[in-house]
Nucleic acid binder design. Sequence first.
DNA 1: TTGTAGGCGTTATCAT
DNA 2: ATGATAACGCCTACAA
Lengths: 337, 337
Amino acid sequence: MDSVGRVRSVTIRDVARAAQVSPATVSRVMNRQSTVDAELVRRVQQAAASLGYHPSAVAQGLARGRTGLIAILVPDLGNPMFQSVLRGISRAAGAEGYRVLVSDSHEMPLEEPLLARETRLRTDGLVLCAPRAHDDELAALAERLNPFVLVNRHVAGLDVPTVSVDYAAGMRAVVAHLAGLGHRHVAYLAGPMASVSNRQRLDSLHESVQGRLELSVRECGSMQQDGYDAAGGALEDGATAIIGYNDLVALGALARLQAAGVEVPERVSVVGFDDIPFARYANPMLTTVAVPQEELGREAWERLSAVLRGEDPPADVCFTPRLEVRSTTGVVRTDTL
Amino acid sequence: MDSVGRVRSVTIRDVARAAQVSPATVSRVMNRQSTVDAELVRRVQQAAASLGYHPSAVAQGLARGRTGLIAILVPDLGNPMFQSVLRGISRAAGAEGYRVLVSDSHEMPLEEPLLARETRLRTDGLVLCAPRAHDDELAALAERLNPFVLVNRHVAGLDVPTVSVDYAAGMRAVVAHLAGLGHRHVAYLAGPMASVSNRQRLDSLHESVQGRLELSVRECGSMQQDGYDAAGGALEDGATAIIGYNDLVALGALARLQAAGVEVPERVSVVGFDDIPFARYANPMLTTVAVPQEELGREAWERLSAVLRGEDPPADVCFTPRLEVRSTTGVVRTDTL
DNA sequence: TTGTAGGCGTTATCAT
DNA sequence: ATGATAACGCCTACAA
């Protein structure tokens, strides 16, 4: 224990003393600098091993001006979509020796800027995942957040590396698919209003539907239970197809339909968004818009990594999602009940 | 830019100079020490604001001897079980101002000790989630890992705060349930052999089954696809009930049975472990052993938090899981096909 | 090749 | 109440 009461750990000086060299030499050995005499290398390594020495990451961080940490901020860790992105980033960054700090804003747009700054302060860079905060707020923060990259979100007047998904294209494919099956009235179970993804899906849905289909929108949420609770209303609206804000909502709706004895897809079709791993194991298998989630994470890291190396990041990418037609969508039944 | 090429940010000295006080006073103001003259507080705050000053977390970490970070090491971030634990920890720790570093060992027992040490080095404490490493390895590391807590894993000869689940009790309940429904032959779709949870489930299964039921064990894995692939074999063994290592495996098996036209639960029953959120939204709803995952995370943090405060941690807790009987289990059909 | 010394940005001790 | 000053543990010119 030192005077402040903490357990003093083995420092570079201890090793230097034991190996009878200077701290600088120990540092060089630990950092694999080839300019050190073989004999000294041996002595240092032996001393370090026997003392159980490991450089303090914090001290290294201070001295080097980089922590080897990046942060990722997600609106909800409970959502498989963000978990997958996190996973993609964690794996990609881990392969290059970077560790990941996670922060969950719990879908609270007001908390986001604070959390972002706070976590960014502890790290070398930041991945903002579908941030809920306003454009102007983010723009105002941008300088303090740098370097950072944006996932699934564009911020007006801000030139930041971005990876995203063309949800509008996905939605168009959904509408075309449903219209082709004979549906005339679809219901959208909307996600959080603060979510840009939801806005995009909703806007492009309105467009796609123009003069082709009737559309009802039900405010819902982003979790299974939300979909479960909202599915009944969608039916009352007279829709023969339900589009969920995401797979969780769609799967929740599906469960509700089944509980109510409504056959899917014979009576009602269901479509989701994201293609989380569970979508293909659902019964019936969920038709959904497949988003390359882990790849999104990898690409985000690719850009952040480049900036951290002082290079120009690759150009922004926007994935065009693929409609994965499975078993929850089918031709509309024309006979009455 | 300084000589090393990094962008010099605003430091405590800059603020001190601007406010015409000493760095010490700035520090006191930033840390809300009440002993500072109101006028100086004002000047400092104003200077800090106009310069956009924020204390460096790294420097604070070095000076204070604590980082405000904890690490969690999980075998697989792709598994909802660990995601939930992570979430529980992240929320609980976040409420007390701690941030969480995540590390994924990708189910590789050999990597674990290194990762554990490495991440622990950057943080104030560690949560080891169902570690795959050997007892002796962990015991040898214990000193360097301290303080840390163990989730779902006991290590022989090691007195470390632990939170766990009595999987044996869960398995007994499963066997009693299935036997009560008339099943005589059950198949277990085993998880990773390095997983202690799997060992425990398998051992207690062997015990519970003694003289009551015939048991087949199929090596499998821990993901949906593993269950999907292994389900066929279980049927060939003649089992009328399938117990998945976890819900992912069970849900995968369920999907396979459905694809093969095998009715559940009329023809075959299926049981999972964990009760991940999807279990209740499956069709049919999955019977499973409910493990309080987020609570596990919270309790883990509770213990780590206590140790970090220098207090004695609460006693170890072992949750007794509850068998959640839903719709994938039923009486065995006695008639032949 | 090796060592010395200054700096990284804060906090905390000890005078004043 | 405030201000020097010495840690905190490491890295890296620069000198030897």
